[in-house]
Each structure stands twice: as C-alpha cells, then as structure tokens.
Design a protein around this nucleic acid. Structure first.
Lengths: 200, 200
DNA sequence: TTTCTGATAAAAATCGAAAATCATCATACG
DNA sequence: CGTATGATGATTTTCGATTTTTATCAGAAA
C-alpha cells in the first residue's frame, strides 16, 4: 500500500502539472489560479496543496518539466555520431533556434520561463547546469580526439555559455527579435568564435 | 548674425540638457516633465519645444551625451600605448566595470539607458557602433602587428561584441548582480575567450 | 522680425477606495 | 486516512474622477 500510495501521489502531481500546463498555455501563467487548476480536476483548491507545498512549487515543477524536454534535445545533439566541433556548433545553433521558436510560438508558456530566469528558480539553475555540463563533455571529447587544444573543460564551458547569452537568454532573444536582427546568424558566428578559441 | 543665432540655439539645447540631467538624477527619468525643466530655467514649457521637437528628442540627446562620455573612456583605452591584445582585454573588462558602476551608483539616470536599449533609441545604436568600431580597430592593429591571426575585423568585432552581451548589457548586468555573480571574472574570461579565438 | 508666453486640446498618469481574487490553513467530514 | 469546506489575511483588480503631461498655436513682448 505504501507503494500504491507513492505511485498515486506521484501520478497526481503529474496530472496536476498536465492540467496546469494546459491552463498556462491557454490563459497565461499569471492569470491562472490554483483554484482554476483544482476546478478543472474536480477537486477543491485546498487539496492541490496536499501534493505541492505552494504555487511556486507547481510553477517550478512545471518549469522543470518543460526544461527537461529541452535538455532531451541537447542530449540528442551531444550523442550524435559526429566530431565534437560539429556537435558543439549544432548545440549552439539548434538550442538558440529551439528557444526562439518556443518563445514565439508558445509565448504564453514562456512568460513563466522569463520570470523564472529573473528570479532564478531551481529548475532554471538545473537546466543551465545541464547545458554547461554537456558543453564541457563535448570539450572533453574534442580534446581527447585532438580536435581542440587542451583547456579546463568545465571552466571553458562556463565561459562559452556566458558568451552565448545573447542568443540563449529569453530576454535577449525577445529584444533582438523586436529589432529584426538575424539572430541565427549571430548564433552561428558565436559558435565559430568559440570553436576558434578551441583550435589547437 | 546667422552664426550668432546658431551658437545661441545650440547653447540653449546644451543648457536644457544640463538641467534635464540634474532633474533626472534627482527625481528620476520617468518623473520629470518638460514643465519641470522649463520652470527650473525660468522659461515656459512651450519655449522648450522651440529647441527640441519632442520630449523623446530631449531624452535621446541626453542619452547621447551620457554615452559620449563612455565613448571617451573607450577611446582613451584604445589609444593607450600597449599591445592590441592587452587593450582589447582592458576594453572589455573596464567597459564592463564602467557600466556596472554607473548602473549601481547612478541608478536614477540609468533607468533611462535601460529603456533606451529596450526601445533602441538612436543614441544607443550610435554607442554600440562606436564600441564595435573601436574593437574592429584593435583587431586590425593586432593583425598588423602579428598578434592576431587574419580575420575580417568588422565581422569579428561584431561577433565579439555580441559575445559580451552578458557583461555589457544593462539588463544582464542587473540580473547577474542580483544573484551575486562575480561578473568581473566573467568579463575577464570572455576576454580570454575572444583573445584565444584571435591566436595566430 | 524674432523670441517667448499663456491658453488649451488631447492623451496619459495618478489616486483612492470598493470589490474581487488569491494562496494558504485550520478544521470538519466521510 | 484522504478529502473537502470555509475562513482569513493579503494582494490584486477595477473604475471613475482628478490631475499631469505632452504638444500646439495664436498672439504678446522685445
């Protein structure tokens, strides 16, 4: 029964997140109350708090769920059978494209991500760490294969990540998009810059 | 007399900007009306509009004046008697430090700059062009002296500038400052990254 | 003429208070 | 034990009235 309960509770959390995501998509992140979510599931608002300690916990959990999808994309790129340099380049360009696409097509949902970044929710920190970590992995592999000069992979990855803020950070993407910049080209060029810094 | 008039008008524009700057510093950018400026100068609000076509024109002109001070700092760095690599590094680190310091110490005045960036006022565009231009100059000189490998200076400078958004852009600086990041270290590392990309 | 002012239209910001909504919790119910 | 109700205090929203603010223009002053 202990197992049964755990499964059920975890299942309920998941179901709450699904309903929350629907509402965020439709109504917007700021406008949906936990009462809306509860009502849509035929339960009382108070009952939702049996599964999440606060609304922010719901938000963060949903944020984490969304970011995990992005992380999956990253992993799929990193695991491609290709030279490290090519994968690093693809990571930068495709992650930028992915972020920009989500930002424009799922605007409602990505309001939340922007707030999450401004307030540094745990889910965001985890995601950024994932990106840096995978970059470091590519750097390590590139060094091993002789494509890259020897550097400290973790340090270099962190700096490279910082250098891509212009094409990764939602605020920057939104701002540049308003001016009609060709950001995908920027992403490519920044990737080139990073790869140039890794030349042996 | 034509000359006299022109000097007088230009002088008046300058005096308006000085008064506007005082008010922005004290009361804040959003809270000062052109009536305040006019009153402080003992003239009617209407008369101000003889020298500036709109309030935004005043804002932009003042913004340009402020940015020109920053541009002067940049020039002074670029003209130092030192290797191009050292000057490029100093440019990145010191411009970051300058921006961050202004952002924290002259908060009231820099509200305006943040708005200006979000709305892409002409003064901002001119400033960014100045930064890129001076970076390009340093790249050119570094190539000539053999410090750097041959690249297209303008292209490279633009990309390098984009890569420094994290440590130059007011929004990013403010955000990172809130989390207590050591941004000056980030600036140094990004400078290293850029210099590494320029190795022969 | 040239330089400025006062009056003023239109748009926007501000304000305060009433009403509604919200997250959360203590407690009652099945 | 899991669930729901109802209450609470805090925040947010609403809305209409009032004030500011921007910007213009005819005409006074110099």
């Amino acid at each position: 029964m202990n197992v049964r309960q755990k499964i059920s509770a975890e299942d309920m959390r998941e179901r709450i997140l699904v309903v929350a995501e629907e509402h965020f998509r439709r109504i917007g992140y700021a406008k949906t109350a936990v009462a809306d979510i509860a009502q849509a599931m035929g339960m009382s608002p108070a009952n939702v708090y049996r599964f999440f300690p606060s609304k922010l916990a719901i938000n963060d959990a949903l944020c984490a769920k969304i970011m995990r999808e992005t992380d999956a994309l990253i992993m799929s790129i990193v695991e491609r059978p290709a030279p490290a340099s090519e994968r690093l380049r693809a990571l930068i360009v495709e992650l930028h494209r992915h972020n920009k696409e989500k930002l424009t097509n799922e605007h409602r949902l990505f309001d939340m991500v922007e707030v999450a970044m401004e307030e540094n929710w745990p889910a965001i920190e985890a995601h950024c760490e994932c990106v840096v970590c995978q970059m470091a992995r590519l750097v390590t592999e590139g060094i091993a294969s002789g494509e890259f000069r020897p550097v400290d992979p973790a340090d270099f990855a962190e700096t490279a990540f910082n250098a891509t803020a212009k094409v990764f950070h939602p605020t920057m993407i939104a701002q540049c998009a308003r001016f009609g910049d060709d950001q995908e080209d920027h992403a490519r060029r920044i990737a080139d810059l990073i790869l140039a810094a890794l030349r042996p």
